[in-house]
Amino acid sequence: MRIRLGTRGSRLALAQSESVARRLRAGGHDVEIVRIVTAGDTRPVDSVPGEGMFVAAIAQALLRGEVDVAVHSAKDIPLEEEPGLVVAAYPERADPRDALITRGGGGSLTSLAPGSTVGTDSPRRAGFVRAARKDLRIVPLHGNVDTRLRRLDAGEVDAIVIAAAGVDRIGDGQRIDERLDPSVMPPAPAQGALSIQARRVDAELLAVLAWHDHPDVRLAVDAERRVLTATGGTCRAPVGALATIADDRFTMIVGGVNSDGTDMRVETFGGRRADAMAVAEAAGRNLAREVMLR
């Protein structure tokens, strides 16, 4: 089968898409990588990204039939998906944690000097950093992984907090000083997971992609996103959730914080696998009652 795979053109997006393309080629399929420019790629430097900014153009290309498959970072997909599209597979998940990287290396969140500047593009990361270290200064720092690493090295900030999975996938994992414990900084829902998206009507292609789906990853991602939905937030909300599936048991750490570091709440929930979505729904509603999430 010939498959046109749509992706952003960043180094990380291409690495993610090539990993999926290799799987499909190993199954005997002819895969063409198609680069698509999204609104997230053309926004002004340090402007705040909107929900779906990195996926909308690719989703529309799928719906128009210009590509057959899209690969996204699962955390970037809007909570309300396009009705004509479906996530056909979630392959293995990478490290879901956030990572601290300093210019000189060898640092940690606790060892940063008072007044150090920490760059991030995320209200969630900003809030949890402030909750842990009120003496640090948060600096808005946007851009893809390469751009943020370059800006760190240029001295714009003393450290950055970024998704570990993205750094690992571009082969720079050795630069990570500290992989932050989820109890200190609960990851964004679906962080570290990839979504392989296709048209809902392409039954033959969906059957091919289904071979690459990991049910435990799918359940974890669905539960984490349910937490976010239950809070009434979007993918930019200062909410973290990380689910772990082990046989019939389900465990989830859920956290929320205001972006100024106040009202932090982090709790752990557990239960049977079959109850995962109900537990996630209740956890999200409870978090919304306890934290303003602004």
Rank of each mutant, 00 (worst) to 15 (best):
19 S>W: 15
291 V>M: 04
274 A>R: 15
36 I>Q: 01
111 S>C: 05
162 I>Q: 10
271 G>M: 14
38 T>I: 05
266 V>W: 05
129 V>Q: 11
221 V>Q: 05
263 D>K: 13
24 L>R: 13
20 V>C: 10
40 G>C: 10
28 G>F: 14
165 A>D: 03
130 R>P: 09
178 E>I: 11
292 M>G: 14
124 R>H: 09
246 A>K: 11
14 L>Y: 01
117 T>K: 06
175 R>M: 01
99 A>F: 11
50 G>R: 13
171 G>I: 01
101 I>T: 07
180 L>Y: 12
49 P>D: 13
178 E>Y: 13
26 A>T: 13
229 T>Y: 12
248 D>G: 07
224 E>A: 14
186 P>A: 03
272 R>W: 01
12 L>S: 00
111 S>H: 03
260 D>F: 15
262 T>G: 11
190 A>M: 07
227 V>G: 03
195 S>C: 12
6 G>L: 02
100 L>T: 09
171 G>Y: 01
38 T>K: 04
287 L>M: 12
133 R>T: 05
113 A>R: 07
229 T>D: 05
55 V>Q: 10
93 R>P: 03
224 E>M: 14
237 A>E: 00
173 G>Y: 03
208 V>F: 04
69 V>Y: 09
116 S>C: 02
240 G>T: 09
27 G>P: 02
182 P>T: 10
17 S>K: 03
189 P>E: 04
269 F>E: 01
28 G>I: 05
50 G>Y: 02
154 A>T: 08
231 T>R: 11
216 D>N: 06
126 A>L: 07
246 A>W: 06
134 K>F: 03
11 R>D: 01
139 V>S: 04
113 A>T: 02
272 R>C: 02
182 P>I: 09
169 R>P: 00
30 D>F: 04
174 Q>F: 03
141 L>V: 12
4 R>V: 01
18 E>V: 10
111 S>V: 06
19 S>E: 12
254 V>Q: 08
108 S>L: 03
222 D>H: 02
206 L>Y: 12
129 V>I: 15
140 P>T: 05
270 G>E: 12
128 F>V: 11
209 L>C: 08
69 V>F: 08
122 S>Q: 06
136 L>A: 00
143 G>A: 08
80 E>H: 14
133 R>Y: 13
148 R>A: 10
190 A>I: 10
219 L>E: 03
240 G>I: 08
275 D>S: 14
10 S>H: 04
118 V>T: 04
182 P>S: 14
4 R>I: 02
17 S>L: 02
61 A>F: 08
175 R>W: 00
282 A>C: 00
167 V>G: 02
188 A>M: 07
260 D>S: 15
170 I>N: 08
162 I>K: 14
152 L>D: 01
277 M>Q: 11
198 A>Y: 04
62 L>A: 15
10 S>F: 00
189 P>K: 06
243 A>I: 03
19 S>P: 10
38 T>Y: 02
198 A>C: 00
140 P>H: 04
162 I>V: 14
41 D>S: 09
155 G>P: 12
87 V>N: 04
37 V>E: 09
292 M>T: 14
13 A>I: 00
133 R>W: 07
5 L>Y: 08
190 A>W: 12
122 S>L: 02
75 K>L: 11
166 G>R: 06
206 L>T: 04
191 Q>M: 13
